[in-house]
Design a protein around this nucleic acid. Structure first.
Lengths: 209, 209
DNA sequence: GTCGTATATATGACATGTCCTATATTCGGT
DNA sequence: ACCGAATATAGGACATGTCATATATACGAC
């Protein structure tokens, strides 16, 4: 139910079409927020029915018309209210952890395969973060050159902080996840994937809390 | 769609009622898998229609009858096939990161409040993990005394590895998440929550990959 | 004595999200 | 010449999950 707010947030930057928003999601918040194309168009329609956004039709010569949505003052108020509202408890559902919970049925080979597949996925994700960082820096350098005055530069740099915060989260949690997977893999190879060894490791972490 | 397998996995230990399964979820896998009560009963009915589980009615004197479900060989086969199947890409949706993505609209006070609320939540979660660890060790000590033979002990200890693995994941990722939040809070207090500082920090992490 | 909680299962209504498809045009590849 | 991808919006069908509520009984708290 936060898709509404994700869209409203994007529209505070500038007016976008549904298609733009879908691309924006895929390129900037994909690692913590994904959105289906159909859901975006339907949510835009809902938001417009509530007068939180409005659209104007923009005709194009070769492409289909775009519906360019912009946020209304009521929409801004709605977004700001959500931003400071207490976060609802997040429902986590991680199929991989579910599989590992039943490790005793998985067998050594199965476990090995699952861990390797997951390690590849994390490595790919971390590599992607590196790419995103590169493109942010590239864009930033261009913008800092291009922007007309100090105020515009300030605004741009402030708008950059949020994306950088979430990217840091992705990198740090990704690294922690990768290290955890590597630890499991190593334990399995050394034959120390036993209850006693795991309990000892857990104590090393928990006692330090 | 993995609720099916979560239930099948539980039923490999011993027969359970829907009510038992709900309690089992809430007490052991809540931090990475939550399930609605209605969903559990409906899924059990679906699984039975597919002959992956069967039930027998157990009459009770004071309480309502229980429907005690047990897994069938076909159910075991289905579970084992899922365990080794490649994991579907996980869809992440984290409202907190979405809020932080729009930090520029949140303001210093709003950000501070959001970070504090989240830090409390993580601390509570980590404390809960500590409690879970304690109760696992308590149960384990009792079981190791009580179990009749070495085979039973072995089986029990092997079944413990999965839960311990997922608990380790919770603790390590929880600690990483808490450290990230603390870093943000500190940066905000020191006035270093800027694009340049964040970029520098990101490089420290990314360049080491 | 009444209220809430635990045990135990189940359904209706609803919210949310995903998949597939339709429409229409242009551009690039094989 | 045809096929797929990109641009752009949208709806039907379906999957999945959640909320509230119903039923029935017993036990402890206030």
């Amino acid at each position: 139910m936060s898709l509404r707010y994700a869209i409203l947030g994007f529209l505070t930057h500038q007016p976008y079409s549904g298609y733009d928003i879908k691309r924006g999601f895929d390129s900037s918040v994909r690692h913590f927020w994904s959105a289906d194309q159909a859901a975006i168009y339907r949510t835009l329609a809902d938001l417009e029915a509530e007068q939180l956004v409005e659209h104007e039709r923009v005709a194009q010569q070769t492409r289909p018309d775009r519906k360019l949505y912009h946020i209304t003052p009521a929409g801004v108020a709605e977004l700001d209210a959500w931003l400071v509202s207490p976060a609802a408890a997040v429902v986590r559902r991680e199929p991989l952890l579910l599989k590992l919970f039943f490790t005793h049925r998985l067998g050594a080979q199965g476990l090995s395969a699952v861990l390797d597949a997951e390690l590849s996925a994390v490595d790919a994700e971390l590599a992607e973060f590196k790419t995103i960082l590169g493109s942010i820096e590239h864009d930033r350098a261009a913008m800092l050159q291009q922007l007309p005055n100090a105020d515009a530069v300030d605004g741009y740099r402030q708008a950059l902080v949020g994306p950088l915060i979430t990217l840091t989260n992705g990198v740090r949690l990704g690294v922690a996840y990768r290290d955890w997977l590597r630890g499991l893999k190593q334990a399995q190879e050394q034959g120390t994937l036993t209850d006693t060894a795991m309990l000892a490791e857990l104590h090393r972490y928990c006692d330090a809390l």
